[in-house]
Nucleic acid binder design. Sequence first.
DNA 1: TCCATTACTTAACATAGGTTAATTGTGGAG
DNA 2: CTCCACAATTAACCTATGTTAAGTAATGGA
Lengths: 195, 195
Amino acid sequence: MLDLLKANIERTISQPIPEGICTAFSSLLFEKQFDKKDNLVEEGQLCKYIYFVTKGSCYSYITDEKGDSHTIQFALEGYWISDLYAFFSEKKSIYTVAALEPTKVLALNREQFQKACDTMPIFDKYFRILIQNAFVALQYRLAKTNSADAEHRYREFSQLHPDFIQRMPQYLIASYLGIKPPSLSRIRKDLANKK
Amino acid sequence: MLDLLKANIERTISQPIPEGICTAFSSLLFEKQFDKKDNLVEEGQLCKYIYFVTKGSCYSYITDEKGDSHTIQFALEGYWISDLYAFFSEKKSIYTVAALEPTKVLALNREQFQKACDTMPIFDKYFRILIQNAFVALQYRLAKTNSADAEHRYREFSQLHPDFIQRMPQYLIASYLGIKPPSLSRIRKDLANKK
DNA sequence: TCCATTACTTAACATAGGTTAATTGTGGAG
DNA sequence: CTCCACAATTAACCTATGTTAAGTAATGGA
């Protein structure tokens, strides 16, 4: 499962990395397993790790005052996930990360993350580009949240993430899109009728 | 106005930078001026630069099918702004960046950006942390957009960005919050009455 | 200083999406 | 195979915010 990570790094920075660097990096990570419904990060707790998913899937969400959950991010194999706010600031987590299936991850803690970035400049680059891409995608998602209606957002999401449509339950997709399950049902019904 | 940038870099990476590095970096930048309402980036055009604001203010927005604008980001002195999607992908811009006042910026183009990152690893670090912070803030903004009502979002925004409240017109603040000017007026009226 | 423009407010009405609750569908544990 | 718990759908009704349009207040250029 290190192959998945190595491929991810090389694709992200658009260059092959020496075997030595890869070994050095992987020595900073350790493998961890979670059952379905386990929490990888818990709201209110410190967030010690960022996780690279090698098997399974998970998602992060925020809980509002009414107790409702709002999905922030999905992660399948090959995705990083965590509460980056809490991870970098060393404050209490504001999000929860939970496994949707039995899930295997590679965990990286803050000290090792710093060490990787400080001793191997290639990792500043890797994480810079990784976050750069995530930022661009997130900005677009917010732009669409504020400028397009729910049906439009659902159609675009289906196109962009057919894999998520397959594997994630609908009530989570609804919450990712910023709507409630009955609304998503309505939208799906309308779309089915149109065809 | 290079002082502003140097201070920004040192604060971001939490370490002083040698004078030499600073000079080398600044030689990659060039100064540019815009009048009020000028576009720094135009939707549909290539986005050649990222801009560091040294004087004045600007904002980025997306235009929807109906022709309505939706504010993505504000930038005062000490902020970077651009269409990062277009800048990095070399595709046509999907956002517009416009000056709200007579504005001075330092412009950095893609080749120089690459050069800075490739030859001075400290700039990978600088931009990594910069984008990291922007990502964390953006993720929180989206989380709130999906989980809190407009009044809550406005109160939080006022607390977090009193400077924006001062300097930005209300119709742009409304659009930043994902609502229309009449709604923001209503909210402000209600808040004034509550006190 | 005055006019023209642009921003802000207000009110009446419209609507997308939320809420609730009942109903049906479904997949995993035993 | 058969429950049971949970996920998805549906329908009736509700509410926050949008829409439109008019009126008022600022602002900036001649």
